[in-house]
């Protein structure tokens, strides 16, 4: 009985493993498919192009310089430069070429001051973005408050873990199984005695 159960278990496990391996292989085989999703298309608005350059710099820092320079070039070449100070954009371009990302961010932000100050309140899916500061990192060095919160959190977790051990169920599943098996055996015996 136990042997048969083990065999069934092994067979099930083998089937599950084989089908999983096939699924993984099939999924990977599909992987070289086309990158089908594209962007929203190039905008002609100069201040948006400048914001896009700022977006690359804010998100990627110096490693976003190449993408940002492309956007700056587009901003310099576009026909819609309303509210954009082209001279400042040109200076930002020079700063980027010189590798000074901070100065470029500053100049780009100033170059669109007129455009963003005349924006109407955002509706629908408008971003409402006027300035594009860099990503805010998760944390700096731990403060005294951080240490206190860390200690309190660790204490709460430890107390909880202690209580969880203290309040754990008295029986393991194996013990419960044995207990219920014994109960069933005794009930069967009682029925047999009753029949006699």
């Amino acid at each position: 009985m136990v042997g048969a159960r083990r065999r069934t278990s092994r067979r099930s496990l083998r089937r599950a493993l084989i089908s999983s391996a096939l699924a993984a292989a099939a999924t990977l085989a599909l992987a070289p498919g086309a990158w089908a999703h594209g962007g929203d298309g190039e905008t002609k608005e100069g201040y948006v192009l400048v914001q896009q350059a700022l977006g690359y710099l804010a998100h990627d820092g110096a490693s976003g310089s190449d993408a940002a320079m492309e956007k700056v070039d587009d901003a310099l070449a576009t026909t819609d430069q309303e509210g954009v100070d082209v001279a400042l954009v040109q200076q930002a371009d020079d700063a980027l070429k010189a590798g000074d990302v901070g100065a470029a961010q500053d100049l780009l932000q100033k170059s669109i001051a007129a455009a963003v100050s005349s924006l109407k309140p955002a509706v629908g899916e408008d971003t409402g973005t006027s300035t594009v500061p860099s990503d805010l990192p998760g944390r700096g060095p731990l403060t005294r408050l951080d240490w206190a919160l860390l200690a309190i959190s660790a204490l709460i977790a430890a107390i909880g873990a202690g209580l969880a051990v203290r309040l754990r169920p008295e029986d393991t599943i194996r013990a419960l199984r044995a207990r219920l098996g014994e109960s069933a055996r005794l009930t069967d015996q009682a029925q047999e005695v009753g029949l006699r």
Binding site: D40, V48, Q51, L54, A58, T131, V132, D135, L136, G138
Partner: peptide
Amino acid sequence: VLWPPTVGAPPVEGL
């Protein structure tokens, strides 16, 4: 405390 989530830059359309 140890791994708080970051806050990204404000959004820019078209990226």
